[in-house]
């Protein structure tokens, strides 16, 4: 069941089309990735969906609410993490969380325990008493996510959540997003990191020049992005002769030797490992590593 439906959405600035008639839908409880290079139209799209910008044309339905006409009603079920943290520098972490909760009508007895729980969950308990301006970039991003979910939104919008932060913080944020999905939150995430999209998204849309050029599940997109399958083998004798012999034996595959002297068998069909291993065993060749190469959207 779709929680978000975007139909023929357009945003123009003078003659320039930032978003050019895009269509997509987001299923309840999924992580939907919006992928594209810088300037592709990701932030323009998210800004129209959350109410920071007015669409030139098109329709946005969020949980049955027409977001163009009733944006305040739609905002009540949204959590929003912008590309730059927008909490108050002078307030400490706890005060920022409580203030954000109060914007959604949460009472003091409700928001204070929730703020403490989130600070602990996001490993910011110690930092909770420090002013926001003293936080590192990763901590700022985590607190901004905590502020966005304090009112338990049905859908969370994240704009480039892992951009510009260290690897460990990025990993923690990805884990947090996956945990939110487990709890039933729908997540819309924009990113220009293919790795992030592959790791956490259920479905993806690629946007380039304001238009969606591909849309589907991660597996569907990987199928169309890569041609065929491959296995990588590390043996004790990776020679040109062995490669030629393998090629003659497995005619439906192509065999190549990589720079690090591993053998790679490529085929349009999935390659069964057993005949390959039997070949090596029969020829007395030791195999130290045999694995299917993961197809990657970036390739």
């Amino acid at each position: 069941m779709s929680i978000v439906t975007v139909t023929n959405l357009k945003k123009t600035y003078g003659d320039f089309s930032a978003v050019d008639g895009i269509n997509f839908s987001i299923e309840q409880g999924e992580i939907f990735g919006f992928l594209g290079p810088n300037g592709a139209g990701k932030t323009s799209t998210i800004n129209m969906m959350i109410g920071l910008s007015r669409p030139t044309q098109g329709e946005i339905i969020i949980d049955g609410i027409d977001a163009r006409r009733q944006i305040k009603k739609a905002q009540a079920i949204m959590g929003i993490v912008p590309d730059e943290s927008n909490l108050y520098n002078e307030m400490d972490g706890f005060e920022n969380l409580c203030f954000c909760a109060s914007l959604y009508g949460m009472r003091k007895e409700e928001r204070e325990p929730k703020a403490r729980q989130l600070l602990e969950q996001f490993q910011l308990k110690e930092a909770g008493k420090r002013p926001f301006k003293a936080y590192s970039k990763g901590m700022r991003r985590k607190l901004t996510i905590a502020a966005a979910i304090i009112h338990s939104p049905r859908i969370l919008f994240l704009d480039e959540p892992t951009t510009g932060i260290d690897v460990e913080s990025a990993r923690q944020i990805r884990e947090l997003i996956l945990k939110l999905k487990e709890q039933g939150t729908t997540v819309f995430i924009t990113t220009h990191y293919i790795e992030d999209a592959e790791r956490i998204c259920d479905r993806l849309a690629f946007i380039v020049g304001g238009k969606i050029v591909a849309n589907g599940t991660v597996n569907e997109l990987m199928e169309s992005a890569s041609h065929g399958h491959a296995i990588r083998l590390v043996t004790d004798i990776n020679s040109e002769n062995l490669a030629a012999d393998l090629q003659a034996r497995f005619t439906s595959s192509t065999v190549e030797i990589t720079r690090d002297h591993a053998l790679v068998l490529r085929s349009a069909e999935r390659i069964p490992l057993l005949p390959v291993m039997e070949y090596f065993d029969h020829n007395g060749i030791a195999v130290y590593e045999a694995r299917e190469l993961r197809r990657c959207l970036g390739r």
Partner: peptide, 14 residues
């Protein structure tokens, strides 16, 4: 300019 005002615009308050 610090973008904290966006948070108010994004809250469900008219």
């Amino acid at each position: 300019s610090g973008r904290s005002f966006d948070r108010l615009l994004l809250a469900p308050i008219s």
